[in-house]
Design a protein around this nucleic acid. Structure first.
Lengths: 338, 338
DNA sequence: GTCTGGCATTGAAACGTTCCGATGCGCCAG
DNA sequence: CTGGCGCATCGGAACGTTTCAATGCCAGAC
């Protein structure tokens, strides 16, 4: 099963290889008579252009890569989706890769994509990665960091203002009347987590009667939320918080379920805010108040920024920061009612 | 910013290009002295091997592609994840692509992957696709169809026995005592949906006192489930079903939420079974009984089968069918209690 | 001292494509 | 009739890699 190449097509159609190439890339430049012969030959021989040959000659591909920690997380899936739609406007395909929060796999895919000479990379990561991206960029592959703001001016990035998001979540809890508030999340070394906590504690500082407790939950999954909630249930009632800000919706949903099962009335006794507004936040039996970071323009902004840096336009700013937005639902509205 | 190639590395290290290539591919064949020099040159020059050159020469790549309708669906994300893990055992990378249920995008990615000469393809689709895969295979790219059983003997496939799954769901509803049962799902043209319904109606036939109503819900999302449930709530109480089999968990969760909000007691008055056992089935406030199709061995089986057909081993069977498994939780257990 | 065998190294060919300068042909103007 | 122009087509070079036959070297055996 030898692969059929452009010269075989040319031979079969009785034309020169250059003409076949012309037919493929500048169809208007070739006479309709030969075009028909070539079309027929391609069909009968089952010719598929080799990307390797094309790319070798051209030096560039028409693919961009998106490396995300975990595609099963709806948050990244949505970004991927909108990136993909926008990229197809430019005629480029998107290959997705899953780093699964592992540094090695992140590096492995970085390497694979670089070897494939992708036009550009879009990277979401929980790990510090700017220095690695700088190395990749110095060898000719530009990238946009998504989800964490870049520290370097050179590194393009699209991010959410997580400090502001954390502040909004906390201000909301304070405004419905919570005073003994717990922040649930971790690890604190992750920038997103640290930022959300920073915003939260800013807000709480402005309300002297309020206290902020930090509960570390390294897992950030539904199961992690359940564990936290189980620990809270085992506390005496008067030591429990009356408001919880969970650093993402999965945690919040786990907490919600276990607290409700344990007899805590939400939102009357305890108000709960999540973060991300994932698909299931609204679908929970008690719809979850949350911070929505995603935005219709997110994927568009990411791809457009990537194309700007690919074409080396000197853009005004390589950083784009979106403000998140509070979505208030039943898990907080009605706090204090009885 | 000219790309640095293997000959520049060779010149810089004062060796021949062949030696550099040897260093990269058969490191034991090159003296440690030159190896050091080469290593240093690669480092200083920032050399990255071009996949295009390598692939052009070799004729094959070390990548496989996975095309799924929708990576944001946890069901496919989990398959991708396990496929990826198994593939890395073989030293190949997996590129993911999102067809988003569109035939054009499916075709586009099929073409892109074929042009990239991936070693093999893994494809999940809701659409009939066997003929297209046959064409791709005839040109040298093998594939494994995942999720729908292939009709052709030539086409490798790994699938779930959805007929059996539908039967199990229905038998479970019957065994807890339901008699007026509704099947919610659609479109019926999709094989998975049709199979689940077929199994369900097989089971119901064996219980003469039971009836099966089919409610078409083309959406198969949480929102779709809500719409169905809203319609049910507007019926007189004695015309409502006492058991519901939803064709996937998203539908079931939407139904669950709206019915509970509407005052229906689950599972006492109405038992509910979903399908897929996604992450949120267990996390729902009333944990959802469901059919678990996924299986630890699924991804492994897919990749192993793909490698078998890639190496053209004459395998005993190109089809692997997994039996799903009932996971009984609170949404059915306790039906009829008051 | 010479020959042989083994091993590290070399240089060139080949993979399939695109691009570019060259070729040939037909047509029109002079 | 001839010269020139435009346009379709052609043929070959180049992209970066791997492989393979050929080369050079050294050690050990005779």
């Amino acid at each position: 099963m030898a692969r059929v190449g452009i010269r075989e097509v040319a031979a079969h159609a009785g034309v020169a290889v250059g003409t076949v190439s012309h037919y493929l890339n500048h169809p208007d430049k070739v006479s309709s008579e030969k075009a028909d012969r070539i079309r027929a030959s391609i069909e009968t021989l089952g010719f598929v252009p080799s990307n390797a040959g094309r790319q070798l000659r051209l030096g560039i591909s028409t693919v961009i890569g998106y490396i995300a920690p975990d595609v099963s997380n709806p948050y990244f899936a949505e970004i991927a989706e909108s990136v993909e739609r926008r990229a197809s406007d430019f005629g480029v395909s998107v290959f997705l890769a899953n780093s699964h929060r592992s540094r090695e796999r992140e590096d492995a895919y970085l390497r694979v994509f670089e070897q494939h000479q992708v036009r550009g990379l879009i990277v979401s990561s929980h790990l510090p990665i700017e220095d690695r991206l700088a190395a990749v960029r110095s060898r000719g592959t530009p990238s946009v960091l998504v989800g964490q703001a870049a520290r370097s001016h050179e590194q393009a990035s699209v991010s959410l203002d997580d400090v502001d998001g954390g502040r909004q979540a906390m201000e909301h809890l304070l405004s419905v009347g919570c005073r003994r508030i717990a922040f649930v999340g971790g690890p604190l070394g992750i920038p997103q987590v640290a930022d959300r906590l920073a915003g939260a504690s800013d807000a709480v500082r402005e309300e002297p009667a309020a206290t902020l407790e930090v509960i570390n939950a390294p897992d950030r999954t539904i199961r992690g939320g359940r564990d936290v909630a189980a620990a809270l249930l085992s506390r005496p009632v008067d030591l429990r918080p009356d408001g919880i800000f969970a650093v993402n919706d999965l945690l919040a949903l786990g907490i919600l379920q276990t607290l409700v099962a344990g007899g805590v009335r939400i939102p009357e006794e305890l108000a709960l805010v999540g973060y991300d507004d994932n698909e299931f936040a609204e679908a929970s039996i008690i719809p979850l108040s949350t911070i929505r970071g995603r935005h219709e323009g997110f994927g568009v902004a990411v791809v457009d920024l990537l194309f700007d840096v690919m074409e080396d336009k000197t853009v005004a700013s390589r950083h784009r920061v979106f403000k998140p937005e509070l979505v208030a639902r039943a898990s907080t509205l009605g706090f204090g009612a009885r």
